[in-house]
Design a protein around this nucleic acid. Structure first.
Lengths: 197, 197
DNA sequence: GTCATGTTATATCGAAACGATACGTGAACA
DNA sequence: TGTTCACGTATCGTTTCGATATAACATGAC
């Protein structure tokens, strides 16, 4: 996932590691940090894969005359890197609904086709709703014999999942409104979701 | 963290891996799964550390007469394991406020002293509130030039953090109510929290 | 009857991410 | 002058993940 995020950030502009790290923090509104321990190995992996290259260029560090021992390393996307990023953007397969991948992709939704956006939102919705239902069921079964804290935890988790489902419903509704206005189709209510393929 | 959770589960009753895995799923009301790829290595680590031992006993698998090639491996806590678990339960240092550790500890709060419970809840509250404030600040700064999806993501994240803070406040209020009724002290309003030590 | 499917159960693999920390430069400020 | 802070690259060992292999047995369909 870090890989996905890095591709997306470098698609905007070449950058060095420290800058990437700072922006990664902002990407999800502060969720998910990504430490240097992940970042630098990832950059090397991506370089080995041919998705990014170092460029010696980049604005020289604000050194007054003296060049520092270790210069900034600025990375930029290669053609293959752009291609790979495009592939990731277009991927709406089940793994893209995972917790850690979904929000990264969402951060690049503006660059994702409407069709893929909708499929991912729906897939994600199904996944979170399933989890929520599982939580609700096991909480219903167990509620009596749970101590206060375990029950609080379970209930808070359940509410969070529930909130996420409603949030996704709003996003989906937004997508469908866009689509139907584009296609000049009459507005339609939420489609009943077929469950488990 | 898996280690903490396993200690807590085995403190209740000896168990084999598969059973542990199922219960781990329920621990946080369905949040955080813990795959086998984590579990079995962890069990071996813990065994090497002397916190758990295998017991050949355990109810025989429902084999009618024939013993299976590979018997169940039932694990139980050693004395050192119990000690280590007690240490973890009593630990209210900053790492215990981390996302992945807090909820595991919360699941065992019934076995944690009131004093430690309060310190952890307060530490956690401070951490989440700080993150929330950071989110709010960067969202305020950036809101205009964010595309719809990035903004939705940031706003949803912010609301989640906000909800968690309020939830923690309720838990803390509950703790303080308990404490003050025990000590027969007059009820007092929420203490203003000193910020950053 | 036997054949697909599902559950119980143990286990390993490589890849990915983490937290802490080291090292170094320069600016700000007390 | 010294100390603290922001910038910047980097590595270490540890933990966790996801996918997958293997195998015994149970259930129900055909």
């Amino acid at each position: 996932m870090l890989e996905f995020a890095v591709l997306g950030l470098l698609a905007d502009a070449p950058m060095h590691g420290y800058e990437l790290r700072k922006r990664l923090g902002g990407l999800l509104g502060g969720l998910r940090a990504f430490s240097y321990g992940s970042l630098y190995p990832t950059l090397r992996r991506m370089q080995a894969a041919g998705w990014i290259t170092e460029t010696g260029s980049g604005v020289a560090p604000p050194t007054s005359g003296l060049r520092p021992k270790r210069a900034r390393v600025v990375y930029q996307l290669t053609a293959q890197g752009k291609e790979h990023f495009a592939d990731l953007l277009a991927d709406a397969s089940p793994p893209s609904w995972a917790d850690d991948r979904f929000d990264v992709h969402l951060a690049f939704f503006a660059r994702t086709s409407a069709e893929v956006r909708l499929r991912i939102l729906q897939g994600r919705r199904r996944r979170v709703a399933d989890r929520r239902d599982g939580m609700r069921a096991s909480l219903g079964r167990a509620r009596e014999r749970l101590d206060r804290y375990t029950r609080e935890l379970a209930e808070h988790g359940l509410e969070s999942a529930d909130r996420e489902v409603r949030w996704l419903d709003e996003l989906i509704a937004g997508e469908q409104a866009d689509t139907s206005s584009e296609a000049a189709r009459p507005a339609m209510g939420p489609q009943p979701q077929p469950h488990h393929p």
